Structures are given as C-alpha cells and as structure tokens.
Amino acid sequence: MNRLRGTLMAAAVPLFLLAACAQPGATGAGSATGSGSPESAPASPRSGDDLVARVESYGGFVPPDRTVGSLPAVSVYADGRVITQGPVPAIYPGPALPNLQVVTLSPDQIQQLTQEATASGVRPGTDFGRPNVADAPTTRVTVRTDQGVQSVSVEALNEAQAKDPMLTAAQQAARARLAGFVKKLTDLSAGDATTASVAYEPTSLAVLARPYTEPAGDEPAQTPIAWTGPALPGDYLNPALKIGCVVVTGADVATVMTTARMANQLTPWTAGSGKYLITFRPLLPDEKGCPQFKGNR
C-alpha cells in the first residue's frame, strides 16, 4: 500500500477557516506559546462529517494571492475518513486539480489519536515558545477531545534550530512532542487504515478565479480552455487581489473536474470576453462554500 504524504507545496500554504464547530478561539497567528482553549462545541461528534483532527499551515514567506483557498495537510473525520494531499508529478506547471487521498481508520484508532493529541500538547497552557526564525510558517493543530475542541498554533514548528537560544529546554521538548504527533497524522500509512487509499471525490468544488496575466520571459505558452461552469469570476473574496469564488455542485462537479483534468495550474480559462487563471479547491466534508476563504490569519 502507498504511504500517504501530507506534503504542502510552497504555493499552497493552508489559509482558510475551520468549520464553525472547530474554530480556535484563543490561538491566533501571533500567539507566542501556541496555547489553546476548549470551545463550546460538544465533545462528541454529531455526524460523520464532523472534524476530529486537522493539521494546517499558514503564514511564512508566501505571496498573499497564493494562499487563498489552500488545503490542510490532513483532516480526520468522525466516520474515520482521513483526507490528505497525495503525491503529485514533479512537473511544471503542475496539474490543475490537487491529488487528495482518503483512507479510513477504525473507531478505536480515532479515539487513540484524540488521546495522543492531549499527550502531545494540544491543550490549554502548553508553552511552545517563539523561536528565532523569520518568515517561517505557523502550524495549527486542532483536535476534538472529551474536553471539547482544542487548538494550538506554533510558529516554525519544523524550522527552529535544535539549540535555538530563544527556546527553553521545556519548550523544545513540547515542540518535539507536538512535531511527533503531527508527523503521525500527516504520514498515516494505508497499512494503519481499515481501507486502502482511494481518491477523494468531492461533492462540491470551489473555483477561485483571478484575471489571467500573459506569461513573461521563459514561461511556457498555454492553450486556453473554454469554461463551462458557473459564471466567473463570482463574488470577490479579496477585491484588492481580484480573486473571485464560485461553488460547483451536483452533476456539474463531474463535468468541471473532467475538463480540469486536461488543464494545469497555468492554463488560461476563457469565459465570455474574460480570461482567468483558476484554482480548483475541492471542498472537504466540513466545508460549506466561498465565505470561509475570506478570512485572514
């Protein structure tokens, strides 16, 4: 069985809001310790689509127009589904559609993960410190436990030096424990699951469209494709960046995805008199639509 990898591309650092039942309330990007606090959401999931655990990364030295709508490294759901980003071809430009993979864990494995989360420091009061690292991403870990939804945000979790003078021995140890838990989540193998890895088939798809800019220099020329989905660009998520968003649902999802499989990340899409660069963002089970992509860290 193939090993799932939660590798994040540099141009796709996660920047979206968790569903309302799993939004951290006291751990913003500026948190020095990364401490979390329990939410008012019930500890027990209400449906199979309820989020149990998530690892995402945000911030760092990434242009803001490249962070809108990007994907988490891993999402674990109450029915046992684990959705991660699978491997992608080492080509440029890359495929237009992300490679999302799904395996399923047993109820006992899900319970064990939530218990390990608390032991790894995903709880209020854990001090992860702030290392002497500039422009590094922040890792956010959110887990639904018996005490409610807990979340921690840790700057430069994997980038800090082993002997960083800004971190105490206790903070280094806390970081190591959390990094081990994150690695376990993002490197879940199909051998640990009750099902083999399969492609994630979304029931809805967000389409993020921005005005197309003709390539300069040595950028390869791209063949335009006619857009057949909902009218573009949709509602602007960020008027300054001119990024619009529409959601594709129902039978249109299969049609749009079939066309998208013929495209790459630099393909120009024509719609009426306009030409757009599109980011295809499959919506995960706990996600509802475009508004969640408007938030800024």
Rank of each mutant, 00 (worst) to 15 (best):
P230M: 04
Y77L: 10
V68I: 07
L15I: 00
P87H: 14
P45T: 12
L97W: 05
I110N: 10
V52M: 12
R5S: 11
K183E: 14
D135M: 13
T104I: 06
P24T: 02
I243W: 02
T139Y: 07
A19H: 14
T104F: 00
G217A: 11
P38L: 06
A134H: 11
V102M: 04
R210K: 12
L167V: 07
G86V: 04
L284Y: 14
I110P: 14
G34I: 10
K183H: 14
A199Y: 11
S75N: 08
A254H: 03
R123L: 05
D65L: 02
V88C: 00
N158F: 13
E214H: 08
S189Q: 14
P285K: 06
T223I: 02
D164C: 10
Q147G: 05
R177C: 06
N238R: 01
Y276P: 13
T259L: 05
C290W: 07
E214Q: 08
P211N: 03
K294Y: 00
G217M: 12
S75C: 00
K242C: 06
P64R: 12
G272I: 14
G234D: 06
T279N: 15
D108H: 15
V154F: 03
P291G: 08
V207E: 05
T279L: 14
D50E: 09
A29I: 15
T139E: 04
A134R: 13
P24V: 08
A193R: 10
K184D: 06
R5K: 10
D235R: 03
V133E: 02
R175I: 12
R81Y: 12
A160H: 06
R281A: 11
L71P: 01
S47D: 15
G180F: 11
K288T: 15
P239G: 14
Y92C: 08
A19W: 05
A43W: 12
G180Y: 05
G94Y: 04
A10H: 01
V246Y: 07
A19T: 13
L113W: 00
